[in-house]
Design a protein around this nucleic acid. Structure first.
Length: 864
RNA sequence: GGGCGGUUAGCUCAGCUGGUAGAGCAUCGGUUUUACACGCCGGGUGUCAGAGGUUCAAGCCCUCUACCGCCCACCA
């Protein structure tokens, strides 16, 4: 035994604090463009610069890391490129809030420039934090290439793409109905609006007819306050009730205005009263109808959701909801309310702050997406981009085929400022990468830049090629684009994945990535969605501290069936921490017994049968692991590795090896198998595998530099393998027989075995030392007839019968009872199987192999 | 209103192209054997949501139903 310096229990804190820095410092994660090996690249989905690592990141980041590490070990030229996102609204709000709290100032008090300076400072601090957190996960990221979505370089590309799209007519400015969040004080794209069902009230209001004010037409609305901006009442032209009223006018209550009644097919006869008030400035449908009929658009609600415009003074500047009450009161006083109904409907809410959004007409920048979508749809149809699991393709197609133009301007300060400039003298709009010195039309120098910035997702859409340096035609871009994989959660397929595909194809002519791995959501252990309000969130950093990044990574990997949600339980993670400890101790045993004369080139002629058995099993495991990896079924690979290590390597092989430790050949196999295990494990558990590797390493400095295991045709020993498998079963049956009959676990006893197969007997004789050790046998005899040797407890396994002689009469009694019990069970099973075999169809139609198997089992049961 | 998932052991989930149900945790019994008590040995546990169909054979394929969840959608 060698003196080694390995504690009895594994300390993840120590191991995990050491290695990352060493890996990074050695340049292990930094590829060269001209290196050998097929390029394989993944761009990290950039986390918010002000965010903090959450459990969803842990999953989305671990899975590609597992893929990357194996690819790297397989000799691919691997790039795993990190970055962080400026996250427009989120970051700006955070800094604003802080400014308010600490200095009681608003961003307007500071002014744009000063405020942005503050955000940059905040960003620098915050970035360090999130980067440190990411590193804790052990990701093999190339930090030398790290990018930030709002760096000078990125600002340049974004401007360039904007100008390009503008010149192509794909970006345009226009006045349309958009969603505005009065709390975030900016417009939003459709995707940033979440529809939630709320209880509302449908109010039926009487609008008196001008011709005869005693008569009226009733309109139904959920938003009475918008009536101040009504410009018409619309009915379905086929509606018999109202047909004759078309062309007449009504007196719009509370305003003194007169508005027409018109007919439009978009009005649903069956809903409400069948008559709709038309408020073009504050409702999307009304806006559409107004366009058709060329109606005026009267804005009565401002950007902060207060009443405004040409309305009675008493309502002016009121909040929209307060005004609603006031209007209802006033209408009631005039007896103009016919009735009110409780009504549940879906209302758009701001995704970020949950405020009800206000549909609002305003002049914004849009990206025409219909044309961009076509090649992006084709790319997926043609499998240039593959979704995994495939079902997400449908979701993607459905959205892409119904895509609406994308509102890309935001009324924020933190972000990519829109490169559009306005001439103060002739109102000319100039769009250019660099600030124009003078107006191209009137030569005026009085030029101001558009105040708005771009939706954060605009720069994100360009991320795969801008990070690689498309703008400079860089070697990285040439080498690593298109990237290999994009790993992400399904909730950003529209926000990000779809847009990356559109922009990637449009700008570079090639898809941004080949495969999209969509992972599920992480839920709590009861399967509930994690949320701060439910207080069931799990902080990955706590988990890492307590159980280790390796255990966390392994848990996520083994649970991540493609696309399925994961219910994360602390117990499970605890289990894999235990697994790490098991690996540690197995290694400890191996390393303890190494003597320095081991050779990783195994001489298969000289090794033991147990050695052959484990090498064959290892070989098969390696083959399957590689298959699973190639299908992105890392969860199955992880499961296989787990069981190989625990159930086969530790439970059986290490025990077998105790009988052969004096052989340098067995010690070589011990060392080789441990090495292979560490390699297989490395993508999943990089830290512990590295730590142990360092104790047995040969040539390469780090495990990541070694070659990932591949199937070897030298390690195929089917006969020996089968013999050891039989041995295992006989040992298991012997142990079971001992336990069932309460033979003291440690007591060494005499055991008799019987088998009719000469071949198997021969094998067993060879393996008796293993049998004796594992069965706690003092002496084992293989005999031809058990009935003549002694009375004892019986066991049957495969072709083998086992006899453990009774020590006394009590033993005998116990055995009798047990046999009676078992008899009943077997009878039932046998009759079941026999009836099946005698049934008509089974024997005729089922494949021969299956019938044989069946008969064999039946035979076994009968014999018992 | 469309579309998509899920329903398997006490809990959380696997189950690949149909061949007689598995894992982790929990639980029960035994065990401090010289890598590991974060261990070792052994045990119990299921009308695979319900109904019908295809098949020699269905957790797996088809149809319907129920419950749970998600996504998309401008009915005021």
């Amino acid at each position: 035994m060698t003196e080694i310096n390995m504690e009895k229990s594994y300390d993840h804190l120590q191991t995990e604090s050491d290695w990352y820095q060493k890996w990074e410092a050695s340049g292990l994660f930094t590829p060269e463009c001209n290196a050998t090996g097929i390029p394989f690249s993944i761009i990290l989905p950039p986390p918010n610069v002000t965010g903090s690592l959450h459990i969803g990141h842990a999953l989305t980041l671990s899975l590609p890391d597992i893929i990357m590490r194996r690819k790297k070990m397989q000799g691919f030229n691997v790039l795993w490129l990190p970055g962080v996102d400026h996250a427009g609204i989120a970051t700006q709000m955070m800094v604003e809030k802080n400014l308010k709290k600490e200095r009681q100032l608003s961003k307007e008090d500071l002014g744009r420039e000063k405020f942005l300076e503050l955000v940059w400072q905040w960003k620098d601090v915050s970035e360090k934090k999130i980067v440190a957190q990411i590193k804790k996960l052990g990701l093999a990221l190339d930090w030398s290439r790290m990018k930030f979505t709002l760096s000078d370089d990125m600002q340049g590309v974004v401007r360039r793409v904007f100008v390009k799209l503008y010149r192509e007519g794909k970006i345009y400015q226009g006045t349309y109905m958009v969603n505005r969040c009065p709390s975030c004080k900016t417009v939003l794209s459709d995707l940033e609006v979440e529809h939630k069902e709320v209880q509302g009230r449908l109010t039926y209001i009487r609008y008196p007819l001008q011709q005869d004010p005693r008569k009226y037409i009733v309109v139904a609305t959920t938003r009475p306050e918008t009536m101040l901006g009504d410009v018409a009442v619309a009915v379905n032209p086929k509606d018999a009730r109202y047909k004759k009223l078309i062309g007449q006018e009504v007196l719009l209550p509370l305003t003194g205005r007169t508005i027409p009644i018109l007919g439009d097919d978009d009005v649903d006869k069956k809903f409400g009263s069948g008559a709709v008030k038309i408020t073009p400035a504050h409702d999307p449908l009304d806006f559409k109808i107004a366009l058709k009929h060329n109606l005026e658009k009267i804005v009565v609600i401002d950007e902060l959701a207060r009443m405004t415009g040409p309305i009675p003074e008493k309502y002016s500047r009121m909040d929209r909801f307060a005004c609603r009450q006031e209007i209802l009161n006033d209408l009631r006083a005039l007896n103009l309310i016919e009735k009110e109904e409780e009504y549940f409907h879906n209302i758009g809410h701001c995704q970020r702050c949950e405020t009800m959004v206000e549909p609002n007409i305003s002049r914004q920048w849009f990206l025409k997406t219909a044309e961009l979508a076509q090649p992006a749809i084709r790319a997926v149809l043609e499998k240039q981009v593959v979704f995994l699991p495939e079902k997400w393709e449908k979701v993607y197609f459905n959205w892409m085929e119904n895509i609406q133009d994308w509102c890309i301007s935001r009324q924020l300060w933190w972000g990519h400022r829109i490169p559009a400039y306005y001439c103060q003298d002739c109102q000319e709009v100039l769009v250019a990468e660099d600030t124009p010195g003078q107006c191209s039309r009137c030569a005026s120098t009085r030029i101001v830049q558009d105040n708005d910035v771009l939706d954060t997702w605009f720069s994100s859409a360009l991320w795969p090629f801008t990070t690689l340096g498309w703008q400079n035609d860089s070697p990285d871009f040439k080498t690593f684009y298109p990237t290999s994989i994009m790993a992400t959660a399904f909730d950003i397929i529209f926000f990000w994945v779809a847009r990356m595909i559109m922009m990637g194809i449009h700008c570079t002519g090639a898809v941004p990535f080949r495969e999209v791995l969509i992972n599920g959501l992480i839920r709590d252990e009861k399967g509930q969605k994690m949320s701060k309000t439910k207080n069931n969130t799990i902080d990955p950093l706590d988990l890492i501290r307590e159980y280790g990044a390796d255990a966390l990574r392994f848990t996520l990997a083994i649970q991540a069936a493609p696309g399925m949600d994961i219910s994360l339980s602390v117990n499970r993670i605890k289990g894999y921490k235990t697994f790490a400890n098991k690996i540690w101790n197995a290694s400890r045993y191996v390393i303890m017994n190494l003597q320095g004369d081991e050779d990783l080139q195994i001489d298969v002629q000289k090794i033991s049968d147990a050695d052959r058995w484990i090498l064959q099993l290892l070989n098969a495991t390696i083959e399957k692991v590689n298959m699973f990896f190639d299908d992105y079924h890392m969860y199955e690979a992880a499961d296989l590795i787990y069981h190989f290590i625990w159930d086969e390597y530790c439970d059986w092989y290490l025990e077998f090896s105790k009988s052969d430790l004096e052989s340098p050949h067995t010690r070589s196999v011990l060392k080789l198998t441990l090495f292979r295990i560490l390699q297989l494990l490395h993508p999943f558990m990089p830290f512990i595998s590295e730590e142990i590797y360092q104790k047995i390493k040969t040539e390469k400095d780090f495990l990541l530099q070694t070659e990932f295991p591949a199937f070897s045709k030298n390690f195929v020993f089917p006969e020996t393998f089968a013999a050891i498998e039989v041995l295992k079963k006989v040992v298991a049956e012997t142990r079971k027989t001992r336990t069932e009959n309460r033979i003291e676990p440690n007591k060494k006893i005499v055991i008799y075995l019987k088998c009719d197969s000469a071949e198997e007997k021969e094998q067993m004789v060879k393996h008796l030392k293993y049998f004796n050790f594992l069965s706690r046998s003092q002496h084992t005899e293989i005999v031809d007839d058990l009935s003549v040797v002694a009375k004892g407890f019986r066991g049957v396994s495969q072709n083998w019968e086992i006899l453990l002689p009774f020590a006394d009469d009590q033993d005998r009694l116990r055995e009798l009872q047990r046999l009676n019990g078992e008899h009943g069970k077997l009878d039932k099973l046998i009759s079941q199987m026999e009836s099946k075999l005698s049934g008509s169809g089974f024997v005729d139609k089922a494949p021969a192999e299956i019938i044989l198997n069946f008969k064999k089992n039946l035979q076994e049961y009968i014999e018992k």
